[in-house]
């Protein structure tokens, strides 16, 4: 190898590829050595300024007092600063006023997403699509009313539906008849609807009363929506809703958030929920 080295006298190792790519055995260039020592100095400087060397019971803190947590908090403060402008504006406004302002309501929707996820999504689904036994928030059916103020109230004070169990008051035949009437979408046509005083809560036309939270029986939406809808209706009539005397009763409780969330948070949530389906 050495005797036919095509590049004699240049200190190569004799490893040559592609005619002229060769490995040289030269000392590292000056600039490289300078960079090398400079980077070592850099490390020392860094160790003095920043937290770095681990010990048994902690680590060196560095004289700059920098911490990752501190930097995170600074970043957070920056975000808060940006938000503060909106937040102060929101404070003096009612939910209705917020809804009237396109820019502010999009800010509210964006910033309430986490609130909704933490407090509401477990029952109502992450986008208000509801869940088995829990009402859909994205539709236009509002048992207690869909005005944004009413939604605010529902969140603050919670809701608890009441329907007495009818199991002992109806014969099987009557139950079948009533259930069929409810399924038909026009329960008021069935004389039993009057006789059994269903109208007292659901209204003489069967459209429900928002003040009581009684369901509208004439629309396309079922509060307790199940695959076998007829069986579901029968179950509700028989055992009622939140009737403590009946162990098979349906549960329909919206907890009260007034003591868990601030007024502003609830206001934001109301706007957020209103925006799901456009409210009422």
């Amino acid at each position: 190898m050495a005797d036919n080295n095509p590049f004699p006298g240049e200190n190569n190792t004799g490893h040559i590829w592609d005619d002229n790519l060769r490995e040289l055995d030269n000392p590292a260039p000056r600039w490289w050595m300078i960079a090398f020592w400079a980077s070592i100095l850099w490390v020392i400087g860094y160790a003095i300024l920043y937290p770095m060397i681990p010990g048994l019971s902690g680590y060196t803190k560095g004289i700059m007092g920098w911490t990752q947590m501190g930097e995170y908090k600074e970043g957070l403060d920056e975000v808060q600063m940006v938000r503060a402008e909106f937040e102060t504006k929101l404070q003096g406004m009612t939910a209705k006023e917020i809804l009237a302002d396109e820019g502010l309501s999009s800010y509210t929707v964006a910033s309430a997403k986490v609130l909704f996820g933490d407090n509401c999504a477990a029952c109502h689904g992450s986008n208000g699509q509801g869940g088995p036994g829990y009402p859909v928030l994205a539709d236009d059916n509002w048992i207690y009313g869909g005005a944004v103020e009413t939604i605010e109230q529902s969140i603050t004070n919670g809701r608890m539906g009441i329907m007495p169990a009818q199991a002992n008051l109806l014969t099987d035949e009557e139950l079948d008849k009533l259930a069929a009437a409810v399924m038909s979408g026009n329960p008021a046509a069935e004389p039993l609807f009057m006789e059994k005083a269903c109208f007292a809560c659901h209204g003489p036309d069967g459209k429900g009363m928002q003040a009581l939270g009684s369901a509208n029986l004439t629309d396309a939406i079922w509060r307790f929506n199940e695959a076998d809808q007829l069986a579901s209706v029968k179950q509700t009539i028989k055992h009622g809703v939140n009737d403590t005397s009946d162990p098979l009763t349906r549960e329909a409780v919206m907890p009260k958030f007034g003591d868990r969330l601030s007024k502003d948070e609830i206001k934001k949530l109301a706007v957020y929920v209103y925006k799901f389906g456009g409210g009422q």
Binding site: G125, S126, Q129, V136, A138, D140, N141, A220, G277
Partner: peptide
């Protein structure tokens, strides 16, 4: 198109997409 829910049933029986 809003994916979750894909559609919502409205009280008048119509289907709503967001």
């Amino acid at each position: 198109h809003s994916r979750q829910p894909l559609y919502v049933l409205q009280s008048d029986g119509s289907i709503q997409n967001k």
